[in-house]
Amino acid sequence: MADPRLVNLTVNGRMVAVSVEPRRSLADCLRHDLRLTGTHIGCEHGICGACTVLVDGAAVRACLMLAVQVEGRAIATVEGLAGAAALGPLQESFRRHHALQCGFCTPGILMSAHALLSAEPKADRARVIEVLSGHLCRCTGYLPIVEAILDAREAYLCGAAEPAGKGK
């Protein structure tokens, strides 16, 4: 077994150092070492999208990255989307549109949508559906999720949402 290594990273704007074995996935590092259990793990091989987080602003599968690969990088997880007291505008929109039922897929979808709308606040329905195709949801049938994301565009256009990539 390989020796643990110290990895320095920023998570939701906070600098942290964790000691991990090379085989530790970023998803497990977030959940077990940093106790950020908002990031979910479904398939552990890149299919379901539940583990999606942002690395330097780009949506990626946290189950398909090693913690040792994010040295010096800025990670954003679902915990960073909301303020201390209130939900973020994307989350508000999900609530308004009943875009979640069991909520298992939700953190990953929120992070993909956050990355998308931060970069492309005018994304059209086809683009939203394309990005959403990287996620599996067994409950909602996707339609309310599409509506929620489209409805949240306003907040990103007028700057009410914190852009992805700044960590928090």
Partner: peptide
């Protein structure tokens, strides 16, 4: 090729 999230890596 793959999905948005996989294409970032």
């Amino acid at each position: 090729v793959a999905h948005y999230q996989v294409r970032n890596r």
